[in-house]
């Protein structure tokens, strides 16, 4: 699962000009619908800034899914058993599928997939920074499933109730399909942790490297998050970054214990008063540096994406040319088989 982009991206178009009477009525209707938990659908009137926020968020989410294929696909050819190989192929395939669902949801807002891919390839839109970290060992596949997918699920489950219908529907499908992603990661790590000393060490090393970047996936602290408040008012976002991060930490601590692995935070302790686990400070300087493009894999991930697109161009053109010559039916009658 790719994480929901945290609310840190550059702002979309500013607020529209002062509304005329008709526009004000439309805005009132929109606000009432959102407040009443009615879903907004593609052809409904919506404020420009709402549309821009959604396009940015859904596109980043879609980009994260397809860039997120790379770190895991890195291990498909080396998966150490046929069972693990099948699981990993199916998982990476799901990520392509989820990217596809999300691009489709974004397209309902009037922007084409081609345009969105172009924004990704030219660096105008971001994907989740977590995928700019390398997968150095097989255990990283497990750590991504457990921690990265776990963080993403924590972020994404509330999005199934997002105010924009197509996005919410895509998220329902994605969350349903992803239920296996986190579990396979946890199971993989458990097998390593209970395996040979070398396997156990491999698992601990992966958790050491992925724990902090996973916490960063929830985005900057609430006080610094520029778009959170507005997204929450629009029911695009349901919980604050810190709230979700805390939920994730509370879930992970006992899970790590069962795994027999240590989370790399000496300050992690139960706070009786708050009823939550306290954790140590997050290195936001690292977060910002990776976001700026200084992560270990930023250039590599983007270049692979661009290359795949560039090298696929002649294939897409060939199919389009064939369709133009033989008709959009593809040379075979394709009517429904009867109702």
């Amino acid at each position: 699962m790719a994480p929901t982009p945290p609310a840190t991206a550059p702002a979309g178009p500013g607020p529209a000009a002062p509304p005329q009477d008709e526009a004000r009525q439309a805005l009132d209707r929109f606000d009432r619908a959102v407040a009443a938990e009615t879903r907004i659908e593609p052809r409904d009137w919506m404020p420009d800034a709402y549309r821009a926020t959604l396009v940015r968020q859904i596109a980043q989410h879609a980009h994260s899914e397809i860039i997120g294929m790379q770190p895991e696909a890195n291990w498909i050819t080396r998966a150490p058993s046929l069972r693990r190989k099948a699981i990993l192929i199916a998982k990476v395939q799901d990520e392509a599928g989820h990217g596809l669902y999300l691009y489709s949801a974004a397209e309902t807002l009037g922007v084409s997939r081609e345009e969105l891919l172009d924004r990704l390839h030219s660096g105008r839109q971001k994907y989740s920074s977590i995928f700019n970290y390398p997968t150095l060992t097989w255990a990283d596949v497990g750590a991504i499933g457990w921690l990265v997918d776990g963080a993403a699920i924590t972020n994404q489950v509330p999005l199934c109730r997002c105010s924009y219908g197509p996005y919410a529907r895509a998220m329902v499908r994605i969350c349903k399909e992803e239920s296996f992603h986190q579990r396979q990661g946890y199971e993989l790590l458990l097998a390593l942790s209970r395996g040979t000393p070398a396997q156990h060490a491999m698992a601990q090393d992966a958790v050491n490297r992925w724990w902090w970047p996973s916490l960063m996936m929830f985005g900057p602290p609430d006080a610094e998050s520029e778009h959170s408040a507005r997204s929450m008012a629009w029911n695009i976002k349901r919980h604050s970054n810190d709230e979700l991060r805390q939920r994730f930490v509370d879930i992970c601590v006992p899970q790590a214990e069962t795994l027999g692995l240590t989370l790399p935070d000496p300050e992690l302790r139960w706070n009786e008063e708050r009823g939550h686990w306290d954790h140590g400070p997050i290195d936001w300087e690292e977060f910002r540096a990776v976001l700026r493009g200084q992560g270990p894999c930023n250039a590599q991930r983007l270049e692979q994406r661009r290359r795949a697109h560039r090298e696929g161009a002649w294939v897409r053109e060939a199919a389009a040319a064939y369709a133009a010559r033989h008709g959009a039916g593809g040379g075979t009658p394709a009517g429904p088989e009867g109702r």
Binding site: R113, A170, R316, A319, G329, G330, T332
Partner: peptide, 18 residues
């Protein structure tokens, strides 16, 4: 059951879309 809308995709023609 009847067919229900599942989502969308891109394809060059109907055969490939299917």
């Amino acid at each position: 059951l009847s067919h229900t809308h599942a989502g969308s995709l891109h394809a060059p023609d109907a055969v490939m879309a299917l």
